[in-house]
């Protein structure tokens, strides 16, 4: 094992230029993937922020007894989809309207009787903020006897759904394309490194090295290059993120797991790229 590590590291010293070139190529390929990842991460966050506002409001018939409503509120909060349910009395509704609808302040001041109904405002859990679940919960709310009407921005929720689907599809297709390009570029780079040492491989085999013995240093080296490239790509992405955050918009960076995934992706491509290239050499008996 000692020898495998030594041979893998020696390759960096023997061909420093080619090694640096491989790592740089891997770094930039993964950087492009990383940039796209940043866009995807931020887009998702933005969509989550918008979805925060998905809310169902059940307007209540006037004169419903407060005990019944309190009990119903507990029931509604127990729905698996529901995050929170809040009762808003007629007075609170009017109070709110006065502060929020400044343009109508005069009209609202002069009212003799409060025209606004009481309501229960229902917020759904993050995973249930789509048309299907919103509809379902709304339907259930309609079932309560004291509920007059149930409203939610149907159009708006539908648009949000559509947006989410588009984002997911684009993310998948473009992400896969970028990943494929990265795999091809990195694979080619690794292959160059193996070709450069084809003479050495031939000599190793002539003196009786087993295929496994020939292969191991290359695999380790490929994985190392992939890892270094991945780390550099994360660093570059962080630089890009810092610039965007400072000059353009407030953005999010990768979570720790996502950053580790980028480095891991680099390692895997390096490893399997080496395995494929060396394998091709070794098959030539």
């Amino acid at each position: 094992m000692n020898l495998v590590i030594r041979e893998a590291l020696l390759a960096f010293r023997r061909a420093p230029l080619l090694s640096a070139l491989s790592v740089t190529t891997i770094a930039f390929s993964l950087f492009v993937v990383g940039l796209f990842g940043l866009v995807a991460v931020n887009l998702q966050q933005a969509l989550r922020d918008v979805a925060e506002r998905v809310e169902i409001v059940a307007y209540l018939l006037p004169g419903a007894p407060i005990e019944t409503i309190t009990l119903a509120e507990k029931d509604i909060e127990a729905f698996p989809e529901v995050q929170a349910a809040a009762y808003v009395s007629e007075d609170e509704a009017l109070q709110r309207a006065r502060t929020e609808l400044v343009e109508f302040r005069d009209v609202l001041q002069e009212l003799e009787r409060n025209p606004l109904p009481a309501s229960i405002e229902v917020k759904l859990k993050p995973h249930f903020r789509d048309v299907e679940h919103v509809n379902e919960v709304a339907e259930r709310l309609r079932g309560f006897g004291f509920v007059d009407d149930v409203r939610f921005g149907r159009d708006w929720v539908e648009k949000l759904d559509r947006l989410r689907q588009i984002a997911a599809a684009v993310g998948l297709v473009v992400g896969a394309a970028f990943a494929a390009v990265a795999i091809i570029i990195i694979g080619t780079t690794i292959r160059m490194a193996v070709l450069q040492r084809s003479r050495e491989i031939a000599i190793m085999r002539l003196v009786g090295a087993t295929n496994g013995f020939v292969r191991r240093p290359f695999l380790l080296q490929g994985a190392l290059k992939g890892m270094l490239g991945g780390l550099a790509a994360v660093a570059l992405s962080y630089g890009a993120y810092a610039l965007i955050n400072r000059w353009l918009i407030h953005a999010e960076f990768f979570s720790q797991e996502q950053a580790v995934a980028i480095v891991g992706f680099g390692m895997l491509i390096g490893f399997f790229g080496s395995a494929a290239s060396v394998g091709r050499h070794l098959r030539r008996v």
């Binding site: 023997r14 003479r199 002539l206 003196v207 090295a209 087993t210 295929n211």
Partner: peptide
């Protein structure tokens, strides 16, 4: 079998016209 070949080569010494040394 393929995996026997390295064992065979360890019993042989092979020398070529172009030496085939590792330059580095």
């Amino acid at each position: 079998r393929r995996k026997d070949i390295p064992m065979l080569r360890r019993r042989l010494g092979i020398v070529f016209q172009d030496f085939r040394l590792l330059e580095d």
